[in-house]
């Protein structure tokens, strides 16, 4: 795309806000609407906006695709790993109660970690899909 001053300025202004909103949705999901799925999608939307305005190469410099592949697996590993940790601590698989001193603390920590895993995987996979589709047109 031709460099467009208005698009560049507006995108630079919007992208940090979108990322902060994604983090808010991610970590405030316990208290308000939202959670890992929504936060991951919003986060990837910020980077997709960057890629649309500044070009695919610039976006891939921020997050190279090999790191995206690692992140996509990492989120799933965090989620499944929380389950394994609860097994090792003597609880059932994904029974977060054993993670903390009290049931509330354990559940809270477990839900936070699991949502983080969801968010990382969703954001990475959305970006992988976008880069794959958009990268085809560039050849």
């Amino acid at each position: 795309m031709k460099p467009n001053l208005i698009l560049h300025v507006v995108a630079k202004f919007l992208i940090p806000l979108i990322i902060i909103f994604a983090l808010y949705v991610q970590f405030h999901g316990d208290f308000g609407p939202g959670g890992g799925f929504q936060a991951g999608v919003i986060f990837s939307a910020a980077l997709i906006l960057y890629a649309l305005v500044f070009g695919l190469d610039a976006a891939e410099k921020i997050i190279p695709s090999h790191i995206l592949r690692i992140l996509a697996s990492l989120g799933l590993v965090i989620y499944a790993g929380v389950g394994v940790v609860t097994l090792l601590l003597g609880g059932n698989y994904l029974d977060y109660t054993v993670l903390g001193s009290t049931q509330i603390a354990g559940q809270h920590l477990g839900i936070l970690l699991v949502e983080l895993g969801v968010g990382i995987t969703v954001a990475a996979v959305m970006l992988i899909i976008f880069f794959s589709f958009a990268g085809r047109g560039r050849v």
Binding site: F31, G75, Y79, L94, I104, G110, I111, V114, E115, T121
Partner: peptide, 23 residues
């Protein structure tokens, strides 16, 4: 669970297996 948003509590805790499958 101490989580005010029941949707998150159900999604991540009560139905943790289901969400793991979704991820």
């Amino acid at each position: 669970t101490g989580v005010p948003n029941v949707v998150t509590a159900v999604l991540a805790s009560y139905r943790g297996f289901d969400t793991l499958g979704e991820v």
